[in-house]
């Protein structure tokens, strides 16, 4: 099961085939939460782009940092939601799938690399191509690990 939303676990029938999912049971509020969160996240991304604009042939630092920060935040968020036990059922759709999903972007990253290469900046394009996933994965790993340790420390008290 994907980790982007609050989808129910897969149900398997005795014959081994999947039982039909309940037709959109309770999906309305989740979709609305994802939509509102996505709007807010994208607005924050757009604002960051206005504050720190990237020239056509320049290295896209803003998008790189947006993605790194968003990855760190989702690490903290999803560990926190898992540790809370009974979080609000719209917390993950709104904050994770919505806000952070709307804040971070894969398409701008790919088109930024394409733009650098097309402008003859192949080295910067390759650097962006490699640095973004490395930084994103390091961020989510470090943030999730730190959050888990904090929860362990808190329980130990």
């Amino acid at each position: 099961m994907g980790t982007t939303g609050a989808a129910p676990p897969k149900t398997v029938t005795e014959s081994g085939t999947r039982a039909p999912r309940r037709a959109s049971a309770g999906q309305g509020p989740v979709v609305v939460a994802v939509s509102l969160g996505g709007g807010l996240g994208a607005l924050a991304r757009y604002a960051a782009g206005l504050l720190w604009p990237t020239a056509p042939a320049a290295f896209p630092w803003t998008t790189l940092l947006i993605n790194a920060v968003g990855c760190a935040l989702i690490g903290v968020l999803l560990v926190t939601i898992a540790e809370l036990g009974t979080p609000h059922r719209l917390a993950r759709p709104f904050l994770g799938t919505g806000v952070l999903g709307g804040f971070t972007t894969f398409s701008t990253y790919a088109v930024d690399v394409q733009r650098l290469v097309t402008h003859g900046r192949t080295a910067e394009g390759l650097a962006c191509l490699v640095a973004t996933p490395v930084l994103a994965l390091a961020s989510v790993w470090a943030a999730a690990t730190a959050a888990r340790r904090l929860f362990v420390l808190r329980r130990a008290r």
Binding site: T3, I74, L100, T105, T108, A136
Partner: peptide
């Protein structure tokens, strides 16, 4: 572009799923 494609795609879920 900035709105629809930016929000349709995601780096946070991509990296969290990779971590998992």
């Amino acid at each position: 572009g900035t709105g629809l494609c930016g929000a349709l795609t995601t780096y946070s879920t991509f990296s969290y799923e990779t971590l998992r």
